[in-house]
Computed example of a mutant assay.
Amino acid sequence: MKMKKICCLLLCVLLSGCVTKPDNADMLMDVFFTKLTSFDFPTLNNYLETPIDDTIQNEFTSVTESANTSKTTIEALKILKDLDISWVQIESNDSYALFNLTIKYYGLNIIKEDYLELFIEAFKYHADNDKYDEQIAKAYNIAYQKSLPTLSKEFIIECKNINGEWKITDANELISQIISVFKKQIAQIN
């Protein structure tokens, strides 16, 4: 599991700044979902037949801006972006592929239980902002390391080969659902 994340991170670093033209549907899935955690919508749109709707992009911006209101929610958003994504190809031919996609999320309410104990310890440093910030980040990191993704959603993803270029037909529902989970999770810890 950790090795897969390291490989995905390495692939993301190697591919940052350039748009890779996937040779097949499975490669498209790999590239797209490696880049998904950055939520760089212009880059993601390069791999989509139907671009991500502006309303959805604005909603994501709104969620991230509201999450940036406290040290706790900033750390929580970092954890939420660590998605465990897997897929299985259901059917395929030269111009079409269908995948069953599973996304696992961390349940912040479970992490919060472990975090509360560590937060009390971190609060001792509330007079020293730098030390307090460091301890809050450390508390969430420790709680996060002790946890596993506990929530999951499944999607059907359709890919098409359009003029020799593989594209995901539409990711608006997928992105919208991810944002919805982020909003609910952050609301639970506020």
Rank of each mutant, 00 (worst) to 15 (best):
E59G: 09
N45Y: 01
E75A: 14
S92N: 14
L101V: 15
T43P: 06
Q57V: 13
Q57G: 06
P42L: 03
D94M: 12
K78P: 02
I56P: 11
D53F: 00
L77C: 03
N93L: 09
T37D: 10
L101K: 09
T64F: 04
E65T: 05
K35G: 08
L101S: 06
A67N: 09
K81T: 13
K35M: 11
F99H: 10
S62I: 07
D82L: 07
K78T: 03
L98H: 00
F60H: 13
W87H: 08
L80I: 05
T37W: 07
S92R: 14
N46A: 11
L44V: 00
Q89A: 01
E59Y: 07
L48K: 06
I85E: 09
L48T: 12
F39C: 05
N100E: 15
A67H: 04
L101C: 08
D54Y: 00
S86M: 14
I85A: 03
I56A: 06
N45T: 02
D54F: 04
L48V: 12
K35R: 09
T43Y: 08
Q57N: 06
Y47P: 02
S92T: 15
K81G: 07
S95N: 09
K78E: 12
N46Q: 14
Q89R: 14
L101N: 06
T72H: 02
E65P: 00
I90Q: 14
E49A: 10
V63Y: 11
S38T: 10
F41I: 07
T34R: 11
T61D: 01
L80C: 01
L83H: 13
E75G: 01
E75M: 08
S95C: 06
S95Q: 03
S66E: 11
V63Q: 05
T55K: 10
A97F: 00
K78V: 03
S86I: 14
E65N: 06
N45W: 03
I85Y: 13
N46V: 01
Q57S: 10
F33Y: 15
A97M: 00
Y96L: 11
N100D: 15
W87G: 07
F41N: 05
S92G: 06
N46P: 02
